[in-house]
């Protein structure tokens, strides 16, 4: 991938900042999401909560279904492929998806290798639980990072854990002496140049969003205050009582994430939130996929 393409792909993620990316399964839901103020949509056949409930192998969505969503909206459309499944990624690139999510929500296709994302012109977003995972994905060519959280649970605890860990590790790298960066690179299992970037800039070289378990405007505000640059909402919207209203409220909460009075108003009468599952109640831990 050319340097110029890397900048354009990272640049698209920069344009999404301060926004909410919503999971949708139909053109109708995509339109509701766009009207509610989504800055992009993630097209998939089943939202994570249903993937969890259905069990079995979960794969890339039907290209026809993705195309239907591309035609329904004018905002960027993302779609997921399985970890390591570069043929699925090639298909998504062929239908001109705007962003590919190499996602632990689907069943991994490779238990060793991630996709060599440098081979692609289209940008990738990947999940990460800590700085090492994030920099490894960026080294493979990811143009955007999100926390893994624990998808499809409506439980924010893992996303909080991942965001806090990432940020405390960034602060730590920034505070090291220059001659200590080589050891940090060894421990993080990443190239020295990426560690050096974090040391100098006190941030990742790409945009970092929160994902996995966001269900309320307060959840979104929490993640933004913890340093997320935007939010993915998966099951939280279309598994709730009033999707359009909840979606619009989360969008406003992300913009004004420190204004508690406004978020209080936004949180009124949203109907029922998605039914959550606690981390100790689930059998399938998606966050452990792909390290």
């Amino acid at each position: 991938m050319l340097k110029e393409q890397v900048e354009l792909n990272r640049g698209l993620a920069q344009m999404l900042k301060g926004g909410v990316i919503m999971d949708v399964t139909t053109p109708e839901q995509a339109r509701i999401a766009e009207e509610a103020g989504a800055c992009a949509v993630m097209a998939l056949e089943r939202i994570p909560a249903d993937i969890r409930a259905a069990g079995g192998v979960s794969r890339m969505s039907d290209p026809k279904m993705i195309k239907g969503i591309q035609e329904a909206v004018s905002i960027p459309v993302m779609a997921k492929c399985r970890i390591g499944h570069f043929a699925e990624a090639q298909i998504l690139e062929a239908i001109e998806i705007d962003y590919i999510d190499e996602s632990e929500v689907l069943s991994p296709a490779d238990d060793v290798y991630h996709i060599n994302k440098r081979d692609f012109k289209v940008p990738f977003v990947c999940g990460a639980r800590d700085l090492g995972e994030a920099l490894r994905r960026i080294n493979e060519g990811a143009s955007m990072i999100r926390t893994k959280g624990e998808p499809g649970t409506g439980d924010i605890v893992q996303a909080v854990r991942h965001m806090r860990k990432m940020n405390s590790e960034i602060v730590k790298v920034a505070s090291l002496r220059e001659d200590e960066l080589f050891e940090a690179a060894k421990q993080l299992q990443v190239p020295y140049e990426l560690v050096e970037y974090v040391h100098k800039n006190k941030k990742l070289p790409v945009v970092n969003f929160a994902a996995g378990g966001v269900a309320t405007p307060a959840d979104a505000a929490l993640m933004m205050q913890l340093g997320a640059e935007g939010v993915f909402v998966g099951s939280g919207i279309f598994k709730s009582g009033d999707p359009a209203k909840r979606a619009a409220a989360i969008v406003q909460a992300v913009t004004n994430y420190t204004d508690a009075k406004l978020i209080a108003e936004l949180s009124e009468d949203l109907g029922e939130a998605m039914v959550g599952i606690n981390e100790n109640e689930i059998q399938l831990i998606m966050e452990e996929r792909g390290q």
Partner: peptide, 15 residues
């Protein structure tokens, strides 16, 4: 700035 005009336009009115 850049971003999504649909989102910015909506928020300008909502806010």
């Amino acid at each position: 700035p850049g971003g999504e005009s649909t989102v910015q336009g909506k928020l300008l009115r909502d806010l």
